[in-house]
Computed example of a mutant assay.
Amino acid sequence: MTNPRPEFRNGLTRRTALGGGLAGLASAALTGSLVTPARAQQPAPTGNYRIDLHAHFLPPDYRAALLEHGHLTIGGYPTPEWSPEQAITFMDYYGIQAQALSVSDPGVSFLPGREAVDMARYCNSYAAGLFTTYRKRFGAFAVLPMPDIAASIAETIHALDELRLDGVILLSAYDGVYLGDPRFEPLMIALNQRNAYVFVHPAAIPDNAKPALPLPDFLEEFTFDTTRAATMMMVTGMTQRYPGIRFQLAHAGGTVPFLSHRLSVASQSVLGRLWPGDLPRPSVLDTQAQISRFYYDTALSASPAAMASVLAVTGRDHIVFGSDWPFSALTLPQSGSHDPAPGLSDVFDADQRMEIEHHNPLRQLPRLADAVNS
């Protein structure tokens, strides 16, 4: 089979230029000291078995709106093209059975009022149409017209109850307001009532709200923003109050696993040690348990260092595969092995990779599981 990569490579993207190289340097620096691979590299399973829970799409009218409103780049890089045919070519080459598609940053929040509502409906209806045309190949997470809470609740009801999309994607923050803020409570109630799967994706930081460093957002700021959102959801008790929502954190949780001890410092204080065991623990004393309940995807994080950190805070059953395509095109392996995440084999054997890349994702998305198994 000829390498199809030129067909789906869309130029340098915000997530890709440095990610692979830095991950390799980090792995090399840590291997043999603090982080040691669990075993010598093992072969991955064969065939199209992967279920991709971190994959993006840009329907034609959505991409046109991005360009029309000046988003010629996303995070400083050319806004990629996308089509279902390109996605299937990519999936077939890299052994991906199906993708759960989502709209990446900036969602539809770059549009005003009714335009954002209409664009969210367009994207979600487009995704639902793929379920008919390519039944076994695509799932989708609904984009919402945030930060309009009332309109987002209405779109949640339509997307999950009527279109039967597989979940919802939320950005880490909207207009500087992070998930966990009380303003989002009504939406969380609606999501909790539906036992929704919610993919939390980082948002770009406004230039006036971050250090003036000559670095693209995807390199560091994206991971920090995921961490900020997760931390706010935990310390405000949002993840405790709505146990029916299953939250997936992008890119192996940003820095949440690495900072897990620091984030749970209150539980290690005198208050945490003396808290009666028969009383519910307040959110700040329950951080470690909440961290363990998140789901963590492997997008741009398939390395011993990242996976060891995740395994230190949760079980293997809470790790799911993600490719971050088409924003990850330049970081995909060039070896011709057709394995999009060979670093996973430095940590997991073939059976464990099958669990992470196939079984775990399908357990969370029953509609997609029924489609691919029918």
Results as ranks from 00 to 15, higher is better:
M1G: 14
M1A: 15
M1T: 14
T2I: 15
P4L: 09
P4A: 01
R5V: 13
R5N: 11
P6F: 06
E7Q: 12
F8R: 00
F8V: 02
R9P: 07
N10M: 15
T13A: 15
T16I: 00
T16E: 15
L18Q: 11
G20I: 05
G21K: 09
G21S: 11
A23R: 13
A23Y: 08
A26T: 01
S27G: 13
S27D: 15
A28T: 12
T31L: 00
S33Q: 08
V35S: 05
V35I: 14
P37A: 06
P37H: 07
A38L: 06
A38Q: 04
A38K: 00
A40F: 01
Q41L: 05
Q41K: 15
Q42F: 00
P43Y: 10
P43F: 02
A44R: 03
P45Y: 07
G47D: 10
G47Y: 08
N48E: 14
R50V: 07
D52H: 05
D52L: 00
L53R: 07
H54I: 02
H56K: 06
H56S: 05
F57G: 10
L58W: 10
P59L: 09
P60F: 10
P60C: 05
D61S: 13
Y62N: 07
R63V: 04
A64I: 08
A64N: 12
A65W: 06
A65Q: 09
L66N: 00
L66E: 04
L72W: 11
L72H: 14
T73A: 11
I74C: 02
G76N: 03
G76S: 03
T79V: 13
P84C: 09
P84A: 06
E85H: 10
Q86Y: 02
Q86N: 03
A87Q: 15
I88C: 01
T89E: 14
M91F: 10
D92V: 01
D92R: 09
Y94M: 08
G95T: 08
I96R: 08
I96Y: 12
Q97I: 02
A98V: 07
Q99R: 11
Q99P: 09
S102D: 03
S102Y: 06
S104G: 01
D105Y: 09
P106C: 06
G107M: 01
G107K: 07
V108H: 07
V108Y: 04
F110R: 05
F110V: 02
L111T: 07
A116N: 01
V117H: 14
V117S: 12
D118I: 08
D118G: 03
M119H: 01
R121K: 13
Y126A: 12
A128T: 09
A128K: 05
F131E: 04
K136Q: 14
K136C: 10
K136M: 10
F138G: 11
G139C: 04
A140N: 05
A140W: 01
F141I: 10
V143R: 02
L144M: 14
M146I: 06
I149N: 11
